[in-house]
């Protein structure tokens, strides 16, 4: 997955979202060590202080844990990952329903459409 800073919201927020996606998709597996701030910043082409802020936010939500010996690692708390995944899923569903509504479908129709696949 490539990094993209596409919109006008704060950059650290966009980085936090993309780091979260990488953790939930397993690109950074549970319990694995995160790359260093400087490495991530260079890879994403962003300022290291901004990347630092995004990682601090991830620590705040618990997805990343700082260990004294290993540095920053991805959490091994399955429940936390599961909850975060569900949260993302809820966002996708809401976006789908909104998109369908904009096309003139009712919520019921949108659900049936999704189930039947056409």
């Amino acid at each position: 997955m490539d990094w993209s800073i596409a919109d006008s919201r704060p950059i650290w927020l966009q980085l936090e979202e993309q780091l979260t996606k990488r953790i939930l998709s397993g690109e950074y597996p549970m319990g694995s060590r995160m790359p260093t701030v400087r490495e991530l910043a260079a890879e994403a082409g962003v300022n290291p202080n901004t990347m630092q802020r995004a990682l601090s936010a991830l620590e705040g939500s618990g997805l990343v844990v700082t260990q004294r010996t290993a540095g920053r690692v991805v959490t091994e708390d399955q429940q936390l990952i599961h909850a975060a995944r569900k949260e993302q899923a809820a966002g996708l569903i809401a976006a789908y329903l909104q998109g369908m509504q904009n096309l003139g479908f009712t919520e019921e129709e949108a659900r049936t459409y999704l189930k039947e696949g056409n």
Binding site: I5, I11, A44, G45, V46, N47, N49, T50
Partner: peptide
Amino acid sequence: SDVEKVLD
């Protein structure tokens, strides 16, 4: 626009 994301 090219440098914005590397700046503090």
